[in-house]
Design a protein around this nucleic acid. Sequence first.
RNA 1: GUGGCUAUGGUGUAGCGGUAGCACACGAGCUUGUGGAGCUCUUUGUCUGGGUUCAACUCCCAGUAGUCACCCCA
Length: 436
Amino acid sequence: MPENASKKLSTDTYKGVRDFYPKDMAVQSYIFSTWKKVVEQFGYSEYSASVLEPADLYRAKSGEELINEQTYTFTDRGDREVTLRPEMTPTVARMVASKKRELSFPLRWYSIPNLFRYEQPQRGRLREHWQLNVDLFGVKSLQAEVEVISMAVEILRGFGLTDTQFEVRLNNRKIVNFILNDVLELSADKSHALAKLIDRKAKMSAEDFDKKTEVIVGLKFDLFKTLINSQNFEHFVSALPVPLRAHEGIVETQSVIENLEKLGITNVRFDQTLMRGFDYYTGTIFEVFDTNPDNRRSIFGGGRYDDLLAIFGQEKVPAVGFGAGDVVMKDLLTTYNLLPTTDNQTRLYIAIADESSMGFAQDLAQTLRESGVSVALDYSGKKIGDQIKYADKNKIPFVTVIGASEIASGQFKIKHLETGVEVSTSESEIAQIVNR
RNA sequence: GUGGCUAUGGUGUAGCGGUAGCACACGAGCUUGUGGAGCUCUUUGUCUGGGUUCAACUCCCAGUAGUCACCCCA
């Protein structure tokens, strides 16, 4: 025995991660099953992978800072650098690249991985979270982003949200690059600095934003200001010099908006301040937000990343995908009171009147299980009232008591606890009654 | 990683430099085959480690955790 064996261990979880008690797990399962149901309706297949990845996978597109400061990265016993995956896209890109020749495109794939980030935990942002990841590989047409965005919308509708409770914000990396490089003619450094500022625009005062951006933009500040403050897509486009209005990014965005409208998705807004952190996006980028300003984190985020497979030395494959985190999703559903009340999976609780009836009760339970009923038995030997009380507290809907008279008569009283209604029945009818 | 605020039974909360209350939950019971109410009783606590003091749950410092903001963003 070590000397400190008597020292009490803490029951706290590791910083920034959660325990899932049955109650929490029921919520989690509900969220996951709704995600799965919708994406499978769109023909997506589930895949999975290990949480461990070689650290190099994230160096290629994410940069040293992410690896060193925001991931769990360690050296294993064989001197390999290992990272707990902070996002799923590099993993799925690796998987696709690895079997590219034997896969038949387009691929519609999804996964619900747990992801890790070494960051300061806050509400809606923990060190471990689960994320629905949906990707469509091999579709060059803009129908790909239309499908993926409409799937995000269907998921929220599937949870019971109405279209006024959320909105899709849309931008395009081509527009961003074209404004920064061609319209404003900024150097790479300045482009980067300005992009960061635009990303943070909502977090600072208008004066502050103007002051900081003017320094970077210089002579073309007036044009920049008009563009950045345009209230909608039409205004934005009309602020551009005429020859630039037919730019690829503009045309694409226009088309995505129109095609979503055709599908009945109208809560879409062009947002020129939408940037998204990852470097690998090449076209459409989008996020979905709660329209209630209390919840400022994005519910979904994604976009088109046509070049990512190139880092594996493969030909490019057009790809569009998004991610949705469980923490934000749960907060959202809680805000709108859309989480279902959770029932116990057990349908019937068997109370035992006396010790000698136990064997019979166990046989009955086994028979019922074979007919598809979830049954639990009481071994406590307590009074019948206490046994029923237990079932009630644990939200088990039906109770039956097994004792000498039931064994003798073959008739069983099945009590529905919520209504108090009790029906007498034979063994063969129980499954039907209890499973509604 | 930086800064602010916070930390009391399982949960939610009082309190005071002088031996910690309350509510709910949990457990036992209210006489033995039917729950939800009520009543009685029991168990359980000052986050951890230092310091000041005759005395610290209370004041100070550090750590840890939560939370908010920054950073960053899935």
